Computed example of a mutant assay.
Amino acid sequence: MSENDIAERNKEIVLRGFSEFAAGNVETLRGLLREDFIEHSPGNPSGRDAFIEFVASAPVAKARLDLKRVIAEDDHVVMHYHLVPPGEERGLAVVDIWRMVDGLIVEHWDVVQPVPDPGEIPNGMF
């Protein structure tokens, strides 16, 4: 399988998982994350089960997720999306970086930024 084929397969896996998660199915993560999953975000636990338990009670589990773009290269998939928790208007701009091995997510990094007032970003966040 070529690097491009692997990247496309990984992209499809992550997109399916994102779609399921955005629809409210937190348990979809169980089939996506390797048991020894490594998390790089401060305050978020590593390990599949600990991470799923954490995410299930975090605001992201009930937020509206509006995917803007996905980039896949080799064993990495990058997603850029708008996360809007219930009761919030502007929400957050999020970039997730997932590293995949054999069709499972093994590592995660993210960058999260509050979406400012539209007057502060004349070219938009997305």
Rank of each mutant, 00 (worst) to 15 (best):
P116C: 05
R90F: 15
H80R: 08
D117S: 09
L32I: 08
E35L: 15
D5Y: 06
G24I: 05
G47R: 12
E35N: 11
S2F: 01
S46T: 13
A72S: 12
P45C: 00
L33G: 06
R30H: 09
I38E: 14
F126V: 04
G17C: 05
E107R: 08
M79N: 07
A56V: 14
E20W: 07
V101R: 09
V95M: 10
R34K: 09
G43M: 10
E120F: 04
A22Q: 02
I71C: 03
F21P: 04
R64H: 14
V115K: 08
F126R: 13
G87F: 03
S2D: 00
E3I: 08
L65H: 05
E120P: 00
D5E: 12
V14T: 06
G91C: 03
I97R: 01
P122R: 01
P45W: 02
E107W: 08
V101I: 09
L92R: 03
R64G: 12
L32C: 13
E39M: 11
H76D: 03
I13A: 10
V77D: 02
R90S: 10
W109R: 08
E8G: 07
P86V: 10
N25E: 07
A72N: 09
I13S: 06
V112Q: 12
K11M: 03
P116N: 06
D75E: 12
W98H: 02
S19T: 13
L104C: 11
V95I: 15
S19H: 00
L83H: 05
D66N: 12
F21K: 15
L33N: 07
P86M: 10
P42W: 08
F37T: 07
H40D: 13
A56I: 13
I38V: 15
L32M: 15
I121Y: 04
